[in-house]
Amino acid sequence: MSPLEISTGEAVLFWVLAPLMVAGALSLLFAKRPVHIAVSMAGVMIGLAIMYIMLEAPFLGVAQIVVYTGAVMMLFLFVIMLAGVDSSESLVETIKGQRWIAVVGMLGLLVLVIAVVTRATLPPAVGLAEANADTNPVGVARLIFGDYIFAFELTAALLITAAVGALVLSHRRRLSPKIGQKELAEAKLAAYGKGGSAEGVTPPAGPGVYARHNSADMPALDAAGIPIDSSVVTVLRVRGQEAEAADLDSDRVARIATGEPMVPEIAPATETTKENEE
């Protein structure tokens, strides 16, 4: 067996990928929004997939992309949308000493692992040229369906169990009869008929007013000029990304207040396009 030669191309690719991956991973520690973290993690997963292919494991590399980038990280994104989207977390530590323990622990682990890895006397690298003689997937398949067939069958059971488990865990027993669109509309109309509010009977107000500022973060105004909270998407409001009248130029607000017509003039028109571009 000839010792493995690592090509320069591989080295270059490694040194390009590794810093990107570490940077992506560091988002776990420093990014505030879970969505950002999930996306950077997906990037790390892709980097890992490329590395697997570099490491003569093309099957695993593809599986990594399919399983991790394609399935796991997307699942994370779904859950973030479902549960964590409005929970951007403050990075202030609440448990006393936890951060110190974490930092010291991480440094200790890092030093230990790197020291072990670098100080260890490793045998000369062999490479997988021989093992991958019949292409890598065939080699892996021989092992999986040979030596590891029993473990493989067990993973099937594990996956089925996991699927059923997820169903059971996220299942909620219905305690009241289901209220569909029809029932909801009827209930709203009945309430309105008894003198209740008109909310829900008429379509909800859409965001964006003032003709020249119709972005989704701007609440609609009712006839009396009071902002309608429900016209802005909840997520934006929760995240504090809602715009207020004060964010606009005071001149226009004054004009609205005095009831001047809002017919656009020529000169401000360019201004409007500018704002919209923003």
Binding site: Q98, A102, G105, G108, L109
Partner: peptide
């Protein structure tokens, strides 16, 4: 204290300790 993260920290310290002893 009921904080999972504290328990995880203890685990990490334990792992490092065990590694140190072995090495």
């Amino acid at each position: 204290n009921g904080f999972v993260r504290s328990y995880a920290a203890v685990m990490l310290i334990g792992v490092i300790g065990a590694l140190v002893v072995v090495l």
